[in-house]
């Protein structure tokens, strides 16, 4: 069982740059045809600073962490036993290529079901840009199969 003392744990903040090439690559793989995701002029014409990061991209920014699985290491969870159960995003401002985003991740809850056969870790990440403005947040629920 995961020690419940980790509820409230905050990981070190991570600051990452949103790269134009990555956004184009992401748009290509998802077949995104709206030019605001691939054509900088179109993005600017639509009022964005540069290419727009798509709705799920905050999750990808979190994975830029040089130690993307640090949280599970701290919690003592085997990566082969985890499943992504749920993912939620909230949005306040657009994230664009060239932005520098700071991510702060915090463990919100740890609970179990089926007499501990399944444990759930809920972690929330808030994202702020280079101007200190909150751009949004990402909350993931990870299921651990014990």
């Amino acid at each position: 069982m995961i020690d419940r003392k980790h509820v409230g744990l905050e990981l070190d903040p991570l600051t990452v740059e949103v790269e134009k090439g990555r956004l184009r690559f992401f748009a290509k793989v998802t077949g995104q045809s709206d030019p605001v995701y691939v054509d900088e002029d179109a993005a600017k014409a639509a009022g964005y600073r540069s290419l727009l990061a798509p709705p799920t991209f905050l999750f990808s920014l979190e994975l830029e962490n040089p130690e993307p699985f640090k949280l599970f290491e701290i919690l003592g969870v085997d990566l082969n036993r985890i499943l992504h159960g749920e993912q939620a995003f909230s949005y306040e401002r657009p994230v664009c290529a060239g932005d520098t985003i700071t991510l702060r991740q915090r463990v919100m809850d740890i609970f179990d079901k089926k007499d501990g056969a399944l444990e759930f870790i809920v972690a929330n990440t808030t994202a702020t840009n280079q101007r200190g403005e909150k751009v949004g947040s990402a909350t993931k629920t990870v299921v651990v199969r014990n």
Partner: peptide, 22 residues
Amino acid sequence: MAYLGRFLTDWAPQASLRQFSS
């Protein structure tokens, strides 16, 4: 989920999206 995100932004501009979960 990225496909669902594209599906949403095909329908309405992303700036109008407030919450998205699955």
